[in-house]
């Protein structure tokens, strides 16, 4: 029988990892074929009025450094392969936030010949932020909700 005992220090390291992950997640933004509306709102969240960085969130260029993928667009056939590739390049554990109506269901582009109709058709999604486009407050709320969900039960509140 395969019995694996966890060392106390392993638990402590896990605890530190989780604490670090929740307090400073690095995010990557990928546009899988959206109209740009969501993308400028995501950009607006890091600018002075909304300032996503006060939650420790940093928009990062490389998928290999990212914990959270903020993804927009209905996933065009051409972007699909790239989306999967970028998702696979991200280190575990990884989280995906789908921003905008078309990232959720295809939205206005549902049924177009060149779109898949939503991020979750291609990769697993952890959090959905609806709207066309969602307000920056909504995007921040979505990301903060995701971070909240990572906390252990005892620390939620």
């Amino acid at each position: 029988m395969d019995m694996k005992l966890t060392h106390p220090w392993e638990e402590a390291v896990d605890e530190i990892r989780r604490w670090a992950r929740i307090n400073s997640p690095w995010a990557i933004h990928f546009n899988s074929g959206s109209c740009n509306g969501c993308d400028i709102e995501i950009l607006a969240t890091i600018t002075p009025r909304y300032d996503l960085e006060r939650f420790g969130i940093k928009l990062q260029g490389s998928p290999r450094h990212a914990d959270v993928m903020i993804c927009t667009g209905p996933v065009t056939r051409q972007a699909r392969e790239r989306l999967v590739r970028i998702y696979e390049q991200m280190p575990d554990p990884k989280f995906v936030v789908a921003v905008g109506s078309c990232a959720i269901s295809g939205g206005a582009f549902r049924g177009c010949y060149n779109v898949e109709g939503g991020i979750d058709q291609v990769i697993p999604v952890n959090m959905y932020v609806p709207g066309c486009p969602p307000r920056p407050e909504a995007i921040i709320y979505g990301v903060v909700q995701l971070l909240q969900s990572l906390k252990p039960e005892s620390q939620k509140g």
């Binding site: 074929g33 400028i40 051409q78 972007a79």
Partner: peptide
Amino acid sequence: GYVHRGIEKAAEERNYVQDLYLLERVCGI
């Protein structure tokens, strides 16, 4: 071409009022 969604073709499948909202989403800016 990564953002090619096929809007022109989709516009033929919808009526004039629906197209107004579809074509607005050619570009969000």
